[in-house]
Design a protein around this nucleic acid. Structure first.
Lengths: 231, 231
DNA sequence: CCTACATATTAGGTTTACCTAATTCCAGGA
DNA sequence: TCCTGGAATTAGGTAAACCTAATATGTAGG
């Protein structure tokens, strides 16, 4: 990356920190620890401290940071983070819908391209796709004006009763898992019936009209989000 | 850019050097001076020397370089340069055909994205576009296997006689010029008749069936390439 | 209440790709 | 042949984003 005349604030790295803070903070936007950022970003804790100090010390800071007590996004930081997430999810949708990518591959490509597309590109693919509200994994796409729709769904892992649900979204991180989920028919919109659950073994479920039992490990159940079935 | 575990050789910067060497060397692949690279890339001559030494000194060098006598691409370097050019031109075509970009805007976006798309992305847009042989400016797209079709066209600036020609390609660099050319109907495939020429004033031409005279400055005539009209 | 241990920060390095300033090279005209 | 100006290279420096090792902090358990 060039050492341009006068620094341009939004590098790929900065974007990734902002996104990580956004996700780790959750909908309640709680403060995020350096450790959790270091883990998520795969960098040393010292690197996180450095970066946070830089971000917080900038002319118009992207984060609000106090030593030893974690970070939060500033209004500007949240704005930017949501823009990057919008890019990411629009690109994923585009790859899936227009370029016929297999669903497991969209995340990685989007993760790279999200930092480099222009406003125009964003606007054009959104138009081409008919301004979609969610991506192929079922995650909401932040609006053009930077609003993230409130998420009503809950993790499958929180379900304690048997019953029937609609799958709202699946995780996008792990290619392997995603491939297995796809093979079992666990995709957004499908109906999922919980037959047995157990905090160690995980969940035993069936999908759609099938009666075949599918086993879901607790870690995976954390990343599948569901809504109560309307029926 | 990360200081990853063990260096990955193809950074954005390296790609740009390789592309510049490819173009400045021309079809005859003549040696390229540091000065011309510095000018084209907008960096200091010292930076060029540094980079060339690094590229030439690598385990499998991308360039063949001797101090004070310029550089040439190695086979590997040419391979990579052509891959990047292929990316660039496929992306341009894609933006123009699928995303309805105005032609003046495709270059800038492609210039950024060319470094970050995967093989899969390349393959998918090529398929979507029906494996096009040239981009919207009329430039040939290197093949998947890294061959650049030989260019038979000549710069309009080389034309010394009056007569009728087919426009093969126009420059992609300058947004302003490209907009004017588009407005005058100077686009690949159009017929161009040279009515007057003069090394200082440039060319006076007419386009298609129109009789309106269009003036073309010598610098611009350098970047419009033409073929003899079949008729 | 105090200490141990995980978490966080500071200090000091590395790599990449740039920069400026100083020096060397070399080709072409006197 | 020599000399000179432009081109090229060397030397030394900066900023970004990472690293490791050393040190400090703060909270939870004894």
């Amino acid at each position: 990356m060039p050492a341009g005349r006068h620094a341009k604030s939004n590098t790929e790295s900065v974007d990734n920190y902002l996104k990580a803070i956004l996700f780790l903070g959750g909908q309640e936007e709680r403060r995020v620890t350096s450790k959790s950022l270091a883990d998520r970003l795969g960098v040393a804790p010292a690197s996180v401290t450095n970066m946070l100090q830089k971000l917080a010390g900038a002319p118009s800071p992207l984060v609000e940071y106090e030593r030893h007590r974690g970070v939060q996004l500033s209004a500007a930081g949240k704005q930017r983070a949501l823009e990057v997430v919008r890019h990411h999810r629009l690109i994923e949708t585009f790859l899936y819908e227009i370029l016929d990518y297999p669903i497991e591959e969209v995340h990685e490509e989007a993760e790279r391209l999200e930092h480099f597309i222009s406003e125009r590109f964003e606007e054009r693919i959104a138009a081409k796709l008919g301004h979609p509200r969610s991506d192929p994994h079922g995650h909401f796409i932040p609006t053009m004006s930077g609003e993230m729709p409130k998420q009503e769904s809950i993790p499958l892992a929180d379900v304690r009763s048997e019953g029937s649900f609609v799958i709202a979204s699946v995780s996008d991180k792990d290619v392997q898992t995603l491939r297995q989920l796809k093979a079992s028919g666990i995709t957004p919109g499908a109906t999922l019936r919980v037959k047995k659950h157990d905090s160690v073994e995980g969940y035993s479920v069936s999908i759609g009209h099938s009666t075949v039992a599918v086993e879901i490990a607790p870690a995976v159940a954390q990343d599948i989000r569901i809504l109560p079935s309307i029926e």
